[in-house]
Computed example of a mutant assay.
Amino acid sequence: MILTPLPELPAVSYVMPVLNEEGFLEAAVRTILAQDYPGEKEIVLALGPSRDRSDEIAGALAAEDPRVRLVENPQRDIPAGLNAAIAASRHPVVIRVDAHSELTPDYTRRGIEALRRESAANVGGIMRAAGSTPVQRAIARCYNSPFGLGGGAYHGDGEPGPAESAYLGIFRREALDAVGGYDPAILRGEDWELNLRIRRAGGRIWFEPRLQVTYHPRASLGDLAKQFFATGTWRAVLVRKYGGANPIRFFAPGALVVALAVSLVALALLVTGVLPWASGWPVLLAPLAAYLLAIAVATLRIPEQRGIRDRLLTAVTLVTMHVCWGSGFLRGITLGGGRVVDRSRM
């Protein structure tokens, strides 16, 4: 992929899909307007069929500042909304922002510097989850810990360098055009899938830890379960489509769920006397015992906890993440994605 040189201060288009985000939308847009980047800016909001005041808030923001423009996203899905916003935008750098995230003031400036310095097609930084209630804070703690999500550099600290994918993304429009934008058929994991196609086309994905984004996660365990089941399902779809291009870590939650199911069935058969303890079946309890021990260790090691309540919430959150992601993965591997979507914000 050959990209033309960027000027020092290229104009920037921020694109944001919006659906039922009345609690976060205004703050997200204002962090964009407050960027210390001196180049030209525009913001394109792709409005899905929200049931709350999101459209009203978006309209007020557009009326207040002509740099904010609105497009419709009747399909409501994130990839379709992003593609609609990108198509309506005009500038050579495209920055994805989520409505439940907030950028640090230097995000754009530092991102453009990295984009130019590394001749990258896409640059991403670190996601810092934050919560305001006990449950949301527990979810945020697990997001920020390798025990929760694990693997991706953008969930923790790390050194700058080439990356597999990027959180959100500061893109060269040329790179997006070259690969055809987001795949509207991939309803979750669309970032990873797009970055895979960019890498296969010869583009460079760059991790820049100086870029910081505050992310507001789901506020209830029920919504978290819906989100992670959908995420696991669509990761399996990507495994079916791209096979070995997927890192081995993505298979772990599905394997965990199978192992835990075997242990629980064995335990039930042993407790009810269907199988004798001397049969050797107790060895099948090892996965359950090992997992519970791992959860206990993680709960002790994850920082920013105060008291037994926080630790219990952390443990329940970790189990919810792992089991729902893994169950979704098994669903996706066997049945495909279908119309499984994350309805936790709908």
Score class of each variant (00 low, 15 high):
residue 10 P to G: 07
residue 214 T to M: 08
residue 145 S to C: 02
residue 149 L to P: 00
residue 217 P to Y: 07
residue 101 S to C: 13
residue 67 R to I: 04
residue 177 D to M: 06
residue 280 G to M: 07
residue 218 R to L: 08
residue 182 Y to I: 10
residue 344 S to N: 13
residue 163 A to H: 12
residue 194 L to G: 00
residue 22 E to C: 06
residue 268 A to C: 05
residue 328 G to L: 11
residue 210 R to T: 15
residue 195 N to Y: 05
residue 96 R to Q: 10
residue 201 A to C: 14
residue 86 I to N: 04
residue 302 I to S: 03
residue 211 L to S: 05
residue 296 A to L: 12
residue 169 G to P: 02
residue 199 R to W: 02
residue 324 C to K: 08
residue 50 S to K: 00
residue 255 A to H: 12
residue 258 V to K: 15
residue 277 W to N: 06
residue 223 D to F: 07
residue 264 L to V: 15
residue 321 M to F: 15
residue 94 V to R: 07
residue 4 T to K: 00
residue 312 L to G: 04
residue 277 W to K: 09
residue 205 I to G: 05
residue 183 D to L: 09
residue 279 S to V: 10
residue 246 N to A: 14
residue 280 G to Q: 10
residue 318 L to R: 08
residue 283 V to P: 07
residue 145 S to G: 02
residue 49 P to C: 09
residue 20 N to E: 07
residue 249 R to E: 13
residue 341 V to M: 11
residue 327 S to R: 05
residue 241 K to D: 14
residue 289 A to C: 03
residue 325 W to K: 09
residue 4 T to H: 03
residue 96 R to T: 04
residue 36 D to C: 13
residue 332 G to I: 08
residue 15 V to C: 08
residue 230 A to G: 09
residue 219 A to V: 10
residue 28 A to F: 03
residue 247 P to S: 12
residue 180 G to I: 11
residue 108 T to K: 04
residue 118 E to G: 11
residue 288 L to P: 01
residue 200 R to M: 09
residue 31 T to N: 07
residue 134 P to N: 10
residue 258 V to N: 12
residue 251 F to E: 13
residue 1 M to C: 08
residue 157 D to T: 15
residue 133 T to S: 15
residue 216 H to F: 14
residue 148 G to P: 05
residue 293 L to F: 13
residue 1 M to F: 08
residue 129 A to M: 00
residue 58 A to I: 06
residue 182 Y to M: 13
residue 270 L to H: 01
residue 151 G to M: 07
residue 318 L to S: 05
residue 208 E to H: 06
residue 200 R to T: 03
residue 167 Y to E: 03
residue 345 R to Y: 12
residue 47 L to T: 04
residue 13 S to T: 10
residue 93 V to N: 03
residue 205 I to H: 06
residue 107 Y to D: 01
residue 201 A to T: 15
residue 260 L to E: 12
residue 65 D to P: 01
residue 147 F to G: 01
residue 230 A to L: 08
residue 78 I to W: 11
residue 322 H to Q: 12
residue 64 E to M: 14
residue 10 P to K: 11
residue 217 P to G: 11
residue 213 V to S: 03
residue 318 L to V: 15
residue 307 G to F: 00
residue 208 E to A: 10
residue 275 L to C: 06
residue 162 P to V: 14
residue 17 P to L: 02
